[in-house]
Amino acid sequence: MADTPSKRTSRLADLAPSRHPWPWGLAAALGLLLVLTFALFALVEPLEPQGEPLTATPAFAADLDGWQKVGDHGRFETDALGGLRMSNDEPGTVVLVRRRLAVPEGATVLRASARVTAEAIVDGPEPWDAARLVLLGLDEHGQGVYDRPHVFASPKGDRSAYEVERDFTMVGRVHDLLLVVELRNATGTITVDDLLIQPMREGAFFGTAHEAIEISWGVWFLFLAFGLMRGVTHWSGRLALLATGATMAVALMLPGEVRTLVVLALEGPLAMSPLAPDDLAHFVMFAGLALVLRLARPNDPLWVQAVGLSATAALTEVVQLFAVERGPSVADWVYDTTGIVLGLLLYETVRRLHATLRPERT
């Protein structure tokens, strides 16, 4: 029998915001946050120059004044425009020039640009054996910050020429910058022109808006967690949800440098895994969240939890815009959603198997 107009009106009234203010309020706040977030990153310039550039034009004087040369067997040439042409014909040797530059106080980002040309580049056997432009942040003791260089450019092949510009976020206290042009156990010729390193800092308006919206996202996720808790009656379920959410929040906002160190530390123990450590982490975390949520709220429709968790995974990718050297990734969302689906299917399989094997009570 078809619903009468009065019945349909009654069902629509049951969904009115006056009857369910919590989800409607969360949805409205989410829409506003999404608009503000995309407007901030699309319309507001985040960086402004901090002081003078660290390198002058021309960057390389006729005698490489201020640069330290390594490798007597290599060939070093400079042109009238201040470009550097460096060659190496001996495999297994290192040819490089490097210069130490002071980073001004308050600079949080380095914007590096150059025109790079490469000829007959043949890399060595190791991943770090290559023609490269490298930026390495140094602390006040001259030690590498995180001991991991930023590769500004790494040309390859018989012949290539391109303009490159990159921004590097300086995580930790960077006192000096070591700028290196190198042929490390690689042969061929690399030419660098128009080299410019400009310290940058976050714009005042962007910084204030960035922090305000980031805090708002945190508050929104707290209200979402509180809403989920309202439907959980047992304390152990609430504790499990809280612990899972807190763990995911920490992993979500890890700076890019720290995340890379964690991934490198896990590459050995997880060498036999079909997934990379960071992909496996996405898969496992959201599979675990799906299991915990299903255990804590078993009466929710399965499809509602699946869609809601997948949407939450997409929102966590958006929030990574606020993490240092992180950003949204469709691939990560796919791993998240795959973990969610398999986590929910695992719960349903175990539940039905338990119901089948459980002896009938008399």
Rank of each mutant, 00 (worst) to 15 (best):
L309T: 05
L275K: 09
G308M: 13
L295S: 06
F283V: 04
E267L: 12
Q320N: 05
V318P: 04
L293A: 14
R326Q: 07
F283L: 14
F322S: 02
D279I: 01
G327K: 04
L315S: 09
A296L: 06
G327R: 11
L321N: 11
V292G: 01
V324P: 02
H282K: 06
L280D: 06
M272Y: 15
V319E: 00
F322G: 00
G288Y: 04
V292D: 02
V319A: 10
F283G: 02
S273K: 13
G288F: 03
L289G: 00
E317K: 00
L266A: 09
R326I: 07
L295I: 07
P269I: 04
M285K: 00
L295R: 08
D279N: 13
F322N: 01
D278P: 11
P298N: 06
L302D: 07
F286Q: 00
P269C: 09
A276F: 12
A311G: 10
A287Y: 02
W303I: 13
A271G: 10
S310V: 15
G308S: 13
D278V: 10
D300T: 09
E267Q: 15
P274E: 12
L315T: 08
Q320F: 06
W303F: 15
L270S: 05
A276N: 14
F283K: 02
A313Q: 04
Q320S: 07
G327D: 05
V318E: 06
A271F: 15
M272V: 10
G327S: 07
S310L: 09
P301L: 13
N299C: 12
A323D: 03
A313E: 04
G327T: 08
W303S: 15
V307L: 13
G308W: 15
R326H: 06
T316Y: 05
L275D: 07
A281H: 07
R297P: 01
P301F: 11
P269L: 08
A281V: 03
G327C: 05
M285E: 00
A306L: 15
R297W: 03
M272G: 11
G268I: 05
L280A: 08
P301G: 13
F286H: 01
A281N: 11
A276L: 14
A306F: 14
A311Y: 13
E267F: 05
V284M: 06
W303G: 09
A313F: 09
A314H: 06
A311K: 14
G327V: 07
L289R: 01
L309W: 11
A271Y: 10
G327A: 08
F286N: 00
Q320C: 03
L302C: 09
V292A: 02
A271Q: 15
D300L: 15
L293F: 04
R294P: 00
T312I: 11
A281C: 05
V324Q: 10
L302G: 10
D300Y: 06
F322D: 01
D279W: 08
L321K: 03
H282C: 09
A313L: 06
Q320L: 02
L321F: 03
W303Q: 15
A290E: 04
L321D: 10
S273C: 14
A276T: 15
H282Q: 09
D278E: 13
P301M: 15
F283D: 01
D279M: 06
V304R: 15
A296W: 02
L266S: 07
P274W: 09
A323K: 00
P298L: 11
